[in-house]
Design a protein around this nucleic acid. Sequence first.
DNA 1: TTTCTACATTTGGTCAACCAAAAATTGGTC
DNA 2: GACCAATTTTTGGTTGACCAAATGTAGAAA
Lengths: 256, 256
Amino acid sequence: MVNQKLVNQFLVDQIEHKITPLYMLENFSEIKVETPVDKIIRQIRSLITSGQLNAGDKLPSERQLAEKFAIGRSYVRDAIRKLEFYGIVKTMPQSGTVVAGLGITALEGLITDVLEIEDTDFASLVETRVLLEIKSAMLAAERRSSDDIISLEKALTAYETKLAQDGQAVEEDLLFHLKIAEAGKNKVLKSLMLIIIPDIIKSYATLKVCNSDTVSKTIDEHRQILDYIIQQDTEAVQKAMQLHLQDVLGFSRKSI
Amino acid sequence: MVNQKLVNQFLVDQIEHKITPLYMLENFSEIKVETPVDKIIRQIRSLITSGQLNAGDKLPSERQLAEKFAIGRSYVRDAIRKLEFYGIVKTMPQSGTVVAGLGITALEGLITDVLEIEDTDFASLVETRVLLEIKSAMLAAERRSSDDIISLEKALTAYETKLAQDGQAVEEDLLFHLKIAEAGKNKVLKSLMLIIIPDIIKSYATLKVCNSDTVSKTIDEHRQILDYIIQQDTEAVQKAMQLHLQDVLGFSRKSI
DNA sequence: TTTCTACATTTGGTCAACCAAAAATTGGTC
DNA sequence: GACCAATTTTTGGTTGACCAAATGTAGAAA
Protein backbone atom coordinates (compact mmCIF):
# COMPACT_ATOMS: atom_id res chain seq x y z
CA MET A 1 0.00 0.00 0.00
CA VAL A 2 2.78 2.36 0.91
CA ASN A 3 4.52 1.45 -2.30
CA GLN A 4 1.47 2.17 -4.34
CA LYS A 5 1.03 5.53 -2.72
CA LEU A 6 4.61 6.52 -3.33
CA VAL A 7 4.61 5.31 -6.89
CA ASN A 8 1.41 7.14 -7.64
CA GLN A 9 2.66 10.35 -6.11
CA PHE A 10 5.90 10.03 -8.00
CA LEU A 11 4.18 9.58 -11.29
CA VAL A 12 1.79 12.44 -10.61
CA ASP A 13 4.72 14.73 -9.91
CA GLN A 14 6.62 13.53 -12.89
CA ILE A 15 3.89 13.87 -15.44
CA GLU A 16 2.84 17.33 -14.21
CA HIS A 17 -0.50 17.00 -15.96
CA LYS A 18 -3.90 16.28 -14.64
CA ILE A 19 -4.64 12.76 -15.78
CA THR A 20 -7.57 10.69 -14.74
CA PRO A 21 -6.11 8.65 -11.89
CA LEU A 22 -8.46 5.78 -12.57
CA TYR A 23 -6.34 4.58 -15.43
CA MET A 24 -3.21 4.65 -13.40
CA LEU A 25 -4.70 2.75 -10.54
CA GLU A 26 -5.91 0.15 -12.93
CA ASN A 27 -2.49 0.00 -14.46
CA PHE A 28 -0.84 -0.77 -11.16
CA SER A 29 -3.47 -3.00 -9.68
CA GLU A 30 -1.65 -6.10 -10.83
CA ILE A 31 1.44 -5.09 -8.90
CA LYS A 32 -0.55 -5.02 -5.69
CA VAL A 33 -1.40 -8.73 -5.76
CA GLU A 34 0.86 -9.09 -2.74
CA THR A 35 -0.92 -7.80 0.33
CA PRO A 36 1.23 -6.11 2.99
CA VAL A 37 0.74 -9.06 5.32
CA ASP A 38 2.06 -11.54 2.76
CA LYS A 39 4.92 -9.21 2.12
CA ILE A 40 5.90 -9.28 5.78
CA ILE A 41 5.57 -13.05 5.95
CA ARG A 42 7.89 -13.31 2.99
CA GLN A 43 10.35 -10.95 4.67
CA ILE A 44 10.33 -12.96 7.88
CA ARG A 45 10.92 -16.04 5.79
CA SER A 46 13.98 -14.45 4.26
CA LEU A 47 15.17 -13.59 7.76
CA ILE A 48 14.96 -17.26 8.62
CA THR A 49 16.55 -18.61 5.47
CA SER A 50 19.43 -16.15 5.69
CA GLY A 51 20.25 -17.61 9.06
CA GLN A 52 19.48 -14.47 11.03
CA LEU A 53 16.62 -16.26 12.73
CA ASN A 54 16.87 -19.77 14.14
CA ALA A 55 14.31 -22.00 15.80
CA GLY A 56 13.69 -20.93 19.35
CA ASP A 57 15.02 -17.46 18.74
CA LYS A 58 13.02 -14.49 19.84
CA LEU A 59 12.27 -12.48 16.75
CA PRO A 60 12.55 -8.69 16.76
CA SER A 61 9.88 -6.69 18.51
CA GLU A 62 6.83 -5.69 16.54
CA ARG A 63 8.01 -2.09 16.57
CA GLN A 64 11.40 -2.93 15.14
CA LEU A 65 9.87 -5.07 12.42
CA ALA A 66 7.39 -2.33 11.58
CA GLU A 67 10.17 0.20 11.28
CA LYS A 68 12.42 -2.14 9.32
CA PHE A 69 9.69 -2.88 6.79
CA ALA A 70 8.53 0.73 6.73
CA ILE A 71 4.99 -0.31 7.48
CA GLY A 72 2.41 0.04 10.24
CA ARG A 73 2.68 -2.15 13.29
CA SER A 74 -0.84 -3.48 12.72
CA TYR A 75 0.37 -5.28 9.62
CA VAL A 76 3.19 -6.84 11.55
CA ARG A 77 0.75 -7.98 14.21
CA ASP A 78 -1.57 -9.45 11.59
CA ALA A 79 1.29 -11.31 9.98
CA ILE A 80 2.48 -12.68 13.31
CA ARG A 81 -1.08 -13.66 14.16
CA LYS A 82 -1.31 -15.57 10.90
CA LEU A 83 2.00 -17.31 11.47
CA GLU A 84 0.89 -18.16 14.99
CA PHE A 85 -2.30 -19.65 13.66
CA TYR A 86 -0.21 -22.06 11.63
CA GLY A 87 1.91 -22.84 14.66
CA ILE A 88 5.07 -21.42 13.16
CA VAL A 89 5.64 -18.85 15.88
CA LYS A 90 4.46 -18.48 19.43
CA THR A 91 3.84 -15.09 20.97
CA MET A 92 3.86 -14.49 24.70
CA PRO A 93 2.22 -11.32 26.05
CA GLN A 94 4.59 -8.63 27.23
CA SER A 95 7.47 -10.95 26.59
CA GLY A 96 8.04 -11.45 22.89
CA THR A 97 7.45 -13.73 19.96
CA VAL A 98 9.61 -16.79 19.40
CA VAL A 99 10.02 -19.13 16.47
CA ALA A 100 8.45 -22.49 17.24
CA GLY A 101 10.50 -25.65 17.67
CA LEU A 102 10.72 -26.35 13.97
CA GLY A 103 14.01 -26.64 12.19
CA ILE A 104 15.01 -24.19 9.51
CA THR A 105 14.41 -26.57 6.66
CA ALA A 106 10.90 -27.44 7.69
CA LEU A 107 10.08 -23.84 8.42
CA GLU A 108 11.23 -22.75 5.03
CA GLY A 109 8.96 -25.19 3.32
CA LEU A 110 6.03 -24.47 5.57
CA ILE A 111 6.04 -20.72 5.25
CA THR A 112 6.34 -20.92 1.51
CA ASP A 113 3.26 -23.06 1.33
CA VAL A 114 1.19 -21.09 3.78
CA LEU A 115 1.13 -18.28 1.27
CA GLU A 116 -0.34 -20.38 -1.48
CA ILE A 117 -2.73 -22.39 0.63
CA GLU A 118 -5.67 -20.56 -0.85
CA ASP A 119 -5.75 -21.59 -4.47
CA THR A 120 -7.07 -25.07 -4.71
CA ASP A 121 -8.72 -26.98 -7.46
CA PHE A 122 -12.05 -28.66 -7.20
CA ALA A 123 -10.75 -32.09 -8.09
CA SER A 124 -8.33 -32.10 -5.17
CA LEU A 125 -11.07 -30.82 -2.94
CA VAL A 126 -13.46 -33.61 -3.83
CA GLU A 127 -10.73 -36.23 -3.69
CA THR A 128 -9.79 -35.15 -0.20
CA ARG A 129 -13.38 -34.91 0.88
CA VAL A 130 -14.02 -38.48 -0.20
CA LEU A 131 -11.05 -39.62 1.82
CA LEU A 132 -12.11 -37.80 4.97
CA GLU A 133 -15.78 -38.70 4.63
CA ILE A 134 -15.22 -42.40 4.23
CA LYS A 135 -12.90 -42.54 7.19
CA SER A 136 -15.34 -40.48 9.25
CA ALA A 137 -18.21 -42.78 8.40
CA MET A 138 -16.21 -45.86 9.29
CA LEU A 139 -15.13 -44.36 12.59
CA ALA A 140 -18.69 -43.31 13.27
CA ALA A 141 -19.92 -46.84 12.68
CA GLU A 142 -17.28 -48.02 15.10
CA ARG A 143 -17.69 -45.53 17.90
CA ARG A 144 -21.13 -43.95 17.68
CA SER A 145 -22.98 -43.55 20.97
CA SER A 146 -26.74 -43.53 21.37
CA ASP A 147 -26.63 -39.76 21.63
CA ASP A 148 -24.87 -39.63 18.30
CA ILE A 149 -27.68 -41.61 16.73
CA ILE A 150 -30.24 -39.12 17.99
CA SER A 151 -28.14 -36.23 16.71
CA LEU A 152 -27.73 -37.89 13.33
CA GLU A 153 -31.44 -38.63 13.05
CA LYS A 154 -32.22 -35.00 13.77
CA ALA A 155 -29.74 -33.75 11.20
CA LEU A 156 -31.11 -36.12 8.59
CA THR A 157 -34.69 -35.03 9.27
CA ALA A 158 -33.68 -31.37 8.99
CA TYR A 159 -32.04 -32.18 5.68
CA GLU A 160 -35.08 -33.96 4.30
CA THR A 161 -37.43 -31.22 5.47
CA LYS A 162 -35.40 -28.46 3.92
CA LEU A 163 -35.04 -30.44 0.72
CA ALA A 164 -38.78 -31.02 0.41
CA GLN A 165 -39.38 -27.36 1.11
CA ASP A 166 -36.82 -25.55 -1.01
CA GLY A 167 -35.66 -28.22 -3.43
CA GLN A 168 -32.07 -27.86 -2.23
CA ALA A 169 -30.27 -28.15 1.08
CA VAL A 170 -26.55 -27.95 0.59
CA GLU A 171 -25.83 -26.69 4.09
CA GLU A 172 -28.02 -29.26 5.79
CA ASP A 173 -26.39 -31.94 3.65
CA LEU A 174 -22.94 -30.96 4.80
CA LEU A 175 -24.14 -30.54 8.36
CA PHE A 176 -25.28 -34.14 8.33
CA HIS A 177 -21.87 -35.21 7.15
CA LEU A 178 -20.33 -33.09 9.88
CA LYS A 179 -22.41 -34.89 12.47
CA ILE A 180 -21.04 -38.14 11.14
CA ALA A 181 -17.54 -36.83 11.68
CA GLU A 182 -18.58 -35.84 15.18
CA ALA A 183 -19.80 -39.36 15.88
CA GLY A 184 -16.39 -40.60 14.75
CA LYS A 185 -14.87 -39.03 17.88
CA ASN A 186 -11.82 -37.79 16.02
CA LYS A 187 -11.51 -34.08 16.65
CA VAL A 188 -8.71 -33.55 14.18
CA LEU A 189 -10.63 -35.22 11.40
CA LYS A 190 -13.66 -33.12 12.19
CA SER A 191 -11.58 -29.95 12.27
CA LEU A 192 -10.12 -30.72 8.88
CA MET A 193 -13.59 -31.26 7.47
CA LEU A 194 -14.60 -27.93 8.95
CA ILE A 195 -11.74 -26.35 7.09
CA ILE A 196 -12.62 -27.72 3.67
CA ILE A 197 -16.40 -27.44 4.01
CA PRO A 198 -16.51 -23.73 3.17
CA ASP A 199 -14.54 -24.41 0.02
CA ILE A 200 -16.88 -27.20 -0.92
CA ILE A 201 -19.92 -25.00 -0.45
CA LYS A 202 -18.31 -22.28 -2.52
CA SER A 203 -17.67 -24.72 -5.33
CA TYR A 204 -21.20 -26.05 -5.07
CA ALA A 205 -22.57 -22.55 -5.44
CA THR A 206 -20.56 -21.78 -8.55
CA LEU A 207 -21.07 -25.12 -10.25
CA LYS A 208 -24.74 -25.52 -9.35
CA VAL A 209 -24.26 -29.20 -8.74
CA CYS A 210 -27.69 -29.85 -7.34
CA ASN A 211 -30.19 -31.12 -9.88
CA SER A 212 -33.54 -32.58 -8.98
CA ASP A 213 -33.28 -36.08 -10.47
CA THR A 214 -30.53 -37.07 -8.08
CA VAL A 215 -32.36 -35.72 -5.06
CA SER A 216 -34.44 -38.75 -4.17
CA LYS A 217 -31.46 -41.01 -4.63
CA THR A 218 -29.42 -38.82 -2.31
CA ILE A 219 -32.03 -39.09 0.42
CA ASP A 220 -32.04 -42.85 0.19
CA GLU A 221 -28.28 -42.95 0.34
CA HIS A 222 -28.20 -40.77 3.42
CA ARG A 223 -30.65 -42.95 5.25
CA GLN A 224 -28.76 -46.04 4.15
CA ILE A 225 -25.55 -44.64 5.58
CA LEU A 226 -27.22 -43.78 8.85
CA ASP A 227 -28.63 -47.28 9.09
CA TYR A 228 -25.25 -48.84 8.61
CA ILE A 229 -23.77 -46.55 11.25
CA ILE A 230 -26.50 -47.60 13.67
CA GLN A 231 -25.81 -51.25 12.87
CA GLN A 232 -22.08 -50.56 13.27
CA ASP A 233 -21.40 -52.23 9.95
CA THR A 234 -18.06 -50.70 9.06
CA GLU A 235 -17.60 -52.41 5.72
CA ALA A 236 -21.08 -51.59 4.49
CA VAL A 237 -20.89 -47.94 5.49
CA GLN A 238 -17.61 -47.60 3.68
CA LYS A 239 -19.11 -48.83 0.44
CA ALA A 240 -22.26 -46.79 0.91
CA MET A 241 -20.39 -43.57 1.51
CA GLN A 242 -18.13 -44.23 -1.44
CA LEU A 243 -21.14 -44.75 -3.63
CA HIS A 244 -22.83 -41.66 -2.25
CA LEU A 245 -19.89 -39.45 -3.04
CA GLN A 246 -19.27 -41.03 -6.40
CA ASP A 247 -21.86 -38.80 -8.06
CA VAL A 248 -20.27 -35.62 -6.85
CA LEU A 249 -16.84 -36.77 -7.87
CA GLY A 250 -18.07 -37.82 -11.30
CA PHE A 251 -19.83 -34.53 -11.75
CA SER A 252 -16.71 -32.57 -10.94
CA ARG A 253 -14.61 -34.61 -13.33
CA LYS A 254 -17.19 -34.03 -16.04
CA SER A 255 -17.43 -30.28 -15.54
CA ILE A 256 -13.71 -29.61 -15.58
CA MET B 1 -10.75 -6.76 29.48
CA VAL B 2 -13.04 -3.84 30.11
CA ASN B 3 -15.10 -5.99 32.40
CA GLN B 4 -12.08 -7.09 34.32
CA LYS B 5 -10.97 -3.52 34.79
CA LEU B 6 -14.36 -2.43 36.05
CA VAL B 7 -14.66 -5.38 38.38
CA ASN B 8 -11.22 -4.76 39.77
CA GLN B 9 -11.91 -1.09 40.30
CA PHE B 10 -15.20 -1.90 41.96
CA LEU B 11 -13.64 -4.33 44.36
CA VAL B 12 -10.81 -1.95 45.15
CA ASP B 13 -13.30 0.76 45.99
CA GLN B 14 -15.41 -1.60 48.01
CA ILE B 15 -12.68 -3.09 50.12
CA GLU B 16 -11.08 0.29 50.83
CA HIS B 17 -7.87 -1.38 51.85
CA LYS B 18 -4.60 -1.68 50.05
CA ILE B 19 -4.39 -5.31 49.08
CA THR B 20 -1.71 -6.84 46.92
CA PRO B 21 -3.37 -6.79 43.49
CA LEU B 22 -1.53 -9.91 42.40
CA TYR B 23 -3.84 -12.09 44.41
CA MET B 24 -6.92 -10.55 42.90
CA LEU B 25 -5.68 -10.92 39.37
CA GLU B 26 -4.90 -14.52 40.05
CA ASN B 27 -8.30 -14.94 41.55
CA PHE B 28 -10.01 -13.75 38.40
CA SER B 29 -7.72 -15.27 35.84
CA GLU B 30 -10.01 -18.25 35.43
CA ILE B 31 -12.87 -15.98 34.43
CA LYS B 32 -10.80 -14.51 31.65
CA VAL B 33 -10.34 -17.80 29.82
CA GLU B 34 -12.50 -16.26 27.09
CA THR B 35 -10.42 -13.85 25.08
CA PRO B 36 -12.19 -10.72 23.80
CA VAL B 37 -12.06 -12.05 20.26
CA ASP B 38 -13.85 -15.26 21.21
CA LYS B 39 -16.35 -13.19 23.10
CA ILE B 40 -17.17 -11.19 19.99
CA ILE B 41 -17.42 -14.30 17.86
CA ARG B 42 -19.86 -15.71 20.35
CA GLN B 43 -21.86 -12.49 20.28
CA ILE B 44 -22.01 -12.48 16.50
CA ARG B 45 -23.13 -16.07 16.67
CA SER B 46 -25.99 -15.11 18.96
CA LEU B 47 -26.89 -12.36 16.51
CA ILE B 48 -27.20 -14.99 13.81
CA THR B 49 -29.09 -17.55 15.85
CA SER B 50 -31.55 -14.98 17.09
CA GLY B 51 -32.45 -14.29 13.51
CA GLN B 52 -31.17 -10.73 13.49
CA LEU B 53 -28.54 -11.72 10.97
CA ASN B 54 -29.26 -13.89 7.93
CA ALA B 55 -27.00 -15.24 5.24
CA GLY B 56 -26.10 -12.55 2.74
CA ASP B 57 -26.91 -9.78 5.17
CA LYS B 58 -24.45 -7.02 5.70
CA LEU B 59 -23.48 -7.08 9.35
CA PRO B 60 -23.18 -3.85 11.33
CA SER B 61 -20.17 -1.67 10.80
CA GLU B 62 -17.09 -2.34 12.85
CA ARG B 63 -17.68 0.86 14.79
CA GLN B 64 -21.20 -0.07 15.72
CA LEU B 65 -20.13 -3.54 16.81
CA ALA B 66 -17.30 -2.09 18.86
CA GLU B 67 -19.66 0.30 20.58
CA LYS B 68 -22.32 -2.34 21.12
CA PHE B 69 -19.85 -4.72 22.73
CA ALA B 70 -18.15 -1.90 24.63
CA ILE B 71 -14.79 -2.94 23.29
CA GLY B 72 -12.06 -1.62 21.03
CA ARG B 73 -12.51 -1.80 17.30
CA SER B 74 -9.28 -3.77 16.95
CA TYR B 75 -10.92 -6.73 18.63
CA VAL B 76 -13.86 -6.54 16.28
CA ARG B 77 -11.51 -6.46 13.33
CA ASP B 78 -9.58 -9.44 14.64
CA ALA B 79 -12.78 -11.39 15.17
CA ILE B 80 -14.00 -10.60 11.67
CA ARG B 81 -10.60 -11.52 10.27
CA LYS B 82 -10.81 -14.87 12.00
CA LEU B 83 -14.33 -15.50 10.77
CA GLU B 84 -13.23 -14.52 7.28
CA PHE B 85 -10.36 -16.97 7.48
CA TYR B 86 -12.88 -19.74 8.00
CA GLY B 87 -14.97 -18.45 5.12
CA ILE B 88 -17.92 -17.56 7.30
CA VAL B 89 -17.99 -13.89 6.38
CA LYS B 90 -16.63 -11.88 3.49
CA THR B 91 -15.44 -8.32 3.95
CA MET B 92 -15.21 -5.84 1.12
CA PRO B 93 -13.05 -2.74 1.59
CA GLN B 94 -14.91 0.50 2.11
CA SER B 95 -18.13 -1.36 1.57
CA GLY B 96 -18.94 -3.65 4.47
CA THR B 97 -18.81 -7.20 5.73
CA VAL B 98 -21.45 -9.72 4.69
CA VAL B 99 -22.34 -13.16 5.96
CA ALA B 100 -21.23 -15.77 3.43
CA GLY B 101 -23.69 -17.92 1.51
CA LEU B 102 -24.06 -20.45 4.29
CA GLY B 103 -27.39 -21.22 5.87
CA ILE B 104 -28.09 -20.45 9.48
CA THR B 105 -27.91 -24.05 10.60
CA ALA B 106 -24.53 -24.66 9.10
CA LEU B 107 -23.21 -21.36 10.35
CA GLU B 108 -24.31 -22.08 13.86
CA GLY B 109 -22.48 -25.37 13.91
CA LEU B 110 -19.40 -23.98 12.27
CA ILE B 111 -18.92 -21.00 14.53
CA THR B 112 -19.37 -23.13 17.60
CA ASP B 113 -16.65 -25.46 16.46
CA VAL B 114 -14.23 -22.81 15.34
CA LEU B 115 -13.85 -21.82 18.94
CA GLU B 116 -12.82 -25.26 20.09
CA ILE B 117 -10.69 -26.23 17.14
CA GLU B 118 -7.53 -25.95 19.18
CA ASP B 119 -7.73 -28.71 21.72
CA THR B 120 -6.93 -31.99 20.11
CA ASP B 121 -5.72 -35.27 21.44
CA PHE B 122 -2.71 -37.09 20.21
CA ALA B 123 -4.57 -40.24 19.29
CA SER B 124 -6.84 -38.36 16.90
CA LEU B 125 -3.82 -36.61 15.51
CA VAL B 126 -1.95 -39.80 14.73
CA GLU B 127 -5.06 -41.49 13.41
CA THR B 128 -5.66 -38.64 11.00
CA ARG B 129 -2.03 -38.48 10.04
CA VAL B 130 -2.02 -42.14 9.09
CA LEU B 131 -5.05 -41.57 6.92
CA LEU B 132 -3.55 -38.61 5.10
CA GLU B 133 -0.11 -40.13 4.77
CA ILE B 134 -1.27 -43.37 3.24
CA LYS B 135 -3.45 -41.58 0.74
CA SER B 136 -0.62 -39.21 -0.09
CA ALA B 137 1.80 -42.04 -0.66
CA MET B 138 -0.64 -43.86 -2.92
CA LEU B 139 -1.31 -40.72 -4.94
CA ALA B 140 2.41 -40.07 -5.14
CA ALA B 141 3.01 -43.54 -6.52
CA GLU B 142 0.32 -42.87 -9.06
CA ARG B 143 1.25 -39.40 -10.20
CA ARG B 144 4.90 -38.74 -9.37
CA SER B 145 6.95 -37.02 -12.05
CA SER B 146 10.67 -37.39 -12.58
CA ASP B 147 11.18 -34.06 -10.85
CA ASP B 148 9.33 -35.38 -7.84
CA ILE B 149 11.70 -38.31 -7.64
CA ILE B 150 14.68 -35.98 -7.55
CA SER B 151 13.03 -33.86 -4.90
CA LEU B 152 12.22 -36.93 -2.82
CA GLU B 153 15.73 -38.29 -3.12
CA LYS B 154 17.11 -35.00 -1.92
CA ALA B 155 14.77 -34.86 1.05
CA LEU B 156 15.62 -38.41 2.00
CA THR B 157 19.35 -37.71 1.81
CA ALA B 158 18.94 -34.62 3.97
CA TYR B 159 17.05 -36.73 6.48
CA GLU B 160 19.70 -39.42 6.60
CA THR B 161 22.49 -36.89 6.89
CA LYS B 162 20.88 -35.02 9.74
CA LEU B 163 20.08 -38.27 11.48
CA ALA B 164 23.66 -39.52 11.27
CA GLN B 165 24.85 -36.17 12.51
CA ASP B 166 22.53 -35.30 15.38
CA GLY B 167 20.86 -38.62 16.13
CA GLN B 168 17.43 -37.13 15.46
CA ALA B 169 15.74 -35.41 12.54
CA VAL B 170 12.09 -34.89 13.25
CA GLU B 171 11.72 -31.93 10.94
CA GLU B 172 13.53 -33.58 8.05
CA ASP B 173 11.42 -36.66 8.60
CA LEU B 174 8.22 -34.72 8.27
CA LEU B 175 9.64 -32.72 5.39
CA PHE B 176 10.17 -35.96 3.50
CA HIS B 177 6.59 -36.93 4.13
CA LEU B 178 5.54 -33.50 2.94
CA LYS B 179 7.42 -34.01 -0.29
CA ILE B 180 5.47 -37.20 -0.75
CA ALA B 181 2.26 -35.24 -0.38
CA GLU B 182 3.60 -32.80 -2.93
CA ALA B 183 4.25 -35.59 -5.39
CA GLY B 184 0.64 -36.66 -4.91
CA LYS B 185 -0.46 -33.48 -6.71
CA ASN B 186 -3.34 -32.89 -4.33
CA LYS B 187 -3.01 -29.40 -2.94
CA VAL B 188 -5.81 -29.75 -0.43
CA LEU B 189 -4.32 -32.90 1.02
CA LYS B 190 -0.96 -31.25 1.28
CA SER B 191 -2.48 -28.19 2.92
CA LEU B 192 -4.20 -30.33 5.51
CA MET B 193 -0.95 -32.08 6.28
CA LEU B 194 0.66 -28.68 6.67
CA ILE B 195 -1.98 -27.84 9.22
CA ILE B 196 -1.48 -30.88 11.39
CA ILE B 197 2.29 -31.13 11.07
CA PRO B 198 2.99 -28.44 13.68
CA ASP B 199 0.80 -30.29 16.14
CA ILE B 200 2.59 -33.51 15.41
CA ILE B 201 5.96 -31.91 15.98
CA LYS B 202 4.73 -30.40 19.21
CA SER B 203 3.58 -33.79 20.42
CA TYR B 204 6.84 -35.36 19.35
CA ALA B 205 8.76 -32.81 21.37
CA THR B 206 6.78 -33.41 24.53
CA LEU B 207 6.67 -37.18 24.26
CA LYS B 208 10.25 -37.66 23.08
CA VAL B 209 9.21 -40.38 20.71
CA CYS B 210 12.54 -40.76 18.99
CA ASN B 211 14.69 -43.53 20.41
CA SER B 212 17.80 -44.80 18.74
CA ASP B 213 16.95 -48.47 18.25
CA THR B 214 14.17 -47.66 15.79
CA VAL B 215 16.30 -45.25 13.82
CA SER B 216 17.92 -47.68 11.43
CA LYS B 217 14.61 -49.37 10.79
CA THR B 218 13.04 -46.00 10.00
CA ILE B 219 15.68 -45.23 7.43
CA ASP B 220 15.09 -48.54 5.68
CA GLU B 221 11.36 -47.95 5.67
CA HIS B 222 11.76 -44.52 4.17
CA ARG B 223 13.90 -45.80 1.36
CA GLN B 224 11.51 -48.67 0.80
CA ILE B 225 8.62 -46.25 0.45
CA LEU B 226 10.54 -44.11 -1.98
CA ASP B 227 11.40 -47.17 -4.06
CA TYR B 228 7.76 -48.17 -4.29
CA ILE B 229 6.80 -44.65 -5.31
CA ILE B 230 9.42 -44.73 -8.04
CA GLN B 231 8.12 -48.10 -9.20
CA GLN B 232 4.57 -46.73 -9.02
CA ASP B 233 3.48 -49.71 -7.00
CA THR B 234 0.38 -48.35 -5.29
CA GLU B 235 -0.49 -51.43 -3.28
CA ALA B 236 3.02 -51.93 -1.97
CA VAL B 237 3.47 -48.32 -0.95
CA GLN B 238 0.21 -48.43 0.93
CA LYS B 239 1.36 -51.39 2.99
CA ALA B 240 4.83 -49.92 3.49
CA MET B 241 3.52 -46.59 4.72
CA GLN B 242 1.07 -48.31 7.01
CA LEU B 243 3.86 -50.36 8.47
CA HIS B 244 6.08 -47.33 8.80
CA LEU B 245 3.50 -45.39 10.75
CA GLN B 246 2.48 -48.34 12.84
CA ASP B 247 5.31 -47.75 15.31
CA VAL B 248 4.32 -44.18 15.95
CA LEU B 249 0.70 -45.11 16.36
CA GLY B 250 1.55 -47.93 18.71
CA PHE B 251 3.82 -45.71 20.72
CA SER B 252 1.14 -43.08 21.13
CA ARG B 253 -1.39 -45.68 22.24
CA LYS B 254 1.13 -47.00 24.72
CA SER B 255 2.03 -43.63 26.19
CA ILE B 256 -1.51 -42.45 26.76
C1' DT C 1 31.07 -10.13 46.68
C1' DT C 2 26.37 -11.27 46.72
C1' DT C 3 21.60 -10.37 46.96
C1' DC C 4 17.62 -7.88 46.96
C1' DT C 5 14.91 -3.88 45.97
C1' DA C 6 13.56 0.01 43.32
C1' DC C 7 13.63 2.03 38.99
C1' DA C 8 13.88 2.30 33.91
C1' DT C 9 13.17 0.06 29.65
C1' DT C 10 11.06 -3.02 26.44
C1' DT C 11 7.29 -5.84 25.25
C1' DG C 12 2.76 -7.06 23.28
C1' DG C 13 -2.16 -5.40 24.21
C1' DT C 14 -5.45 -1.82 23.41
C1' DC C 15 -7.43 2.11 21.74
C1' DA C 16 -8.88 6.41 19.40
C1' DA C 17 -8.02 9.28 15.52
C1' DC C 18 -7.14 9.94 10.65
C1' DC C 19 -7.39 8.41 5.55
C1' DA C 20 -9.29 7.22 1.10
C1' DA C 21 -12.70 4.72 -1.22
C1' DA C 22 -17.48 3.59 -1.60
C1' DA C 23 -22.26 4.60 -0.77
C1' DA C 24 -25.99 7.68 0.23
C1' DT C 25 -27.88 12.13 -0.18
C1' DT C 26 -28.87 16.28 -2.18
C1' DG C 27 -29.50 19.63 -5.58
C1' DG C 28 -30.10 20.86 -10.05
C1' DT C 29 -31.23 20.12 -14.91
C1' DC C 30 -33.68 18.24 -18.72
C1' DG D 1 -40.80 12.74 -12.93
C1' DA D 2 -36.22 11.01 -14.18
C1' DC D 3 -31.58 11.33 -14.41
C1' DC D 4 -26.98 13.12 -13.45
C1' DA D 5 -23.29 15.48 -10.77
C1' DA D 6 -21.51 17.28 -6.54
C1' DT D 7 -21.36 16.74 -1.75
C1' DT D 8 -21.84 14.59 2.53
C1' DT D 9 -21.76 10.49 5.19
C1' DT D 10 -20.36 5.89 6.14
C1' DT D 11 -17.20 2.19 5.49
C1' DG D 12 -13.05 -0.58 6.24
C1' DG D 13 -7.88 0.49 6.09
C1' DT D 14 -4.02 2.37 8.57
C1' DT D 15 -1.47 4.64 11.82
C1' DG D 16 0.65 6.29 16.06
C1' DA D 17 0.10 6.75 20.91
C1' DC D 18 -0.90 4.99 25.44
C1' DC D 19 -1.17 1.04 28.95
C1' DA D 20 0.19 -2.63 32.07
C1' DA D 21 2.95 -6.52 32.51
C1' DA D 22 7.47 -8.41 32.01
C1' DT D 23 12.24 -7.80 31.86
C1' DG D 24 16.63 -5.73 32.49
C1' DT D 25 19.59 -2.82 35.40
C1' DA D 26 21.76 -0.27 38.81
C1' DG D 27 22.61 0.68 43.45
C1' DA D 28 22.28 -0.12 48.28
C1' DA D 29 22.41 -3.29 52.08
C1' DA D 30 24.30 -7.49 54.10
